[in-house]
Amino acid sequence: MVASTSRMAVSTSDVIILSATLPSPGILFSPNGLAPLTPREHQDLKRIARAVRRDLLLCITEAGSGHPGGSLSEVETLVSLYFRVLRHNPRHPQWPDRDRFILSKGHACPGLYAVLAHRGYFPLQDLLTFRKIDSHLQGHTRVGTPGVEMSAGSLGHGLSFATGVALAGRVDRRGYRTYALLGDGECDEGQVWEAAMSAAHYKVDTLTAIVDRNRIQNDRFTSEVMELEPFAAKWKAFGWRVLTVNGHSFPQLLNAFARAQATQGRPTVIIANTIKGKGVSFMENNPDFHGKAPTKAQLEQALRELGVAAEEGYQPLTWERMP
């Protein structure tokens, strides 16, 4: 099966879930995340999420290493942002007024790469070069990949970086918003709380953090390694607005993004309760798949569970071709 290119990913049917009116010539994709989802739109988002899950697994299996668990748990968050919420333009990744998304949990980059590819930042076929020599798709995100804002891989940097980005927008009087996705295990890093304090101190209300609360970190369950609870209370005590949602529910996520956008005078954190390894039975809630690639046989089973027909082969496809 021949894989589609990025241009095909940005097809006409794609536009169904996007705003019909483009607020500025610079904006290719604009937000309508604040509007309720129609059933058709909801179905499309679910298909996109399935395509992203399939492709990130292809990506990791082909590489022979990578982090499937946290990539699978963040999928709905990423799809919500890139297909509904962010104002961005894949043809102009450096557009100065773009909304920024910063992946702080840089090990979960296969999820981001798959979403960026489906959004048209680079060809879908590139996903199969992940972690290989001469590829722009590094084992952890690195500046240089179209659409990637921050070099990551060492935990705890992203919320600080995002605060700097958001404050730069304030200095320049630009209207963009900044989003940072953190892992829950990542919140063991003290720097996260330095950033939490400074973002609240400077009242950075254009900043939204999302914590992928999948309750598992590298070795074990977060409650075993380092207790985070009472987690929401910690953020609240640091001066943040806290919204807790089911991180696999598009309506809940989109509603939370809308409420974050309407919040003034303080930053918002969305605690997205998720299932690590979501969508693949033997990966779900299994700490073993934090940082381990599936075997070919496991991939086949995973794809079957995601509803991908075997005859589609193991190549990335545009999401419209997903069942």
Partner: peptide
């Protein structure tokens, strides 16, 4: 890290 964000 904030400095890096500003620089970006």
């Amino acid at each position: 890290s904030m400095a890096a964000g500003f620089a970006s």
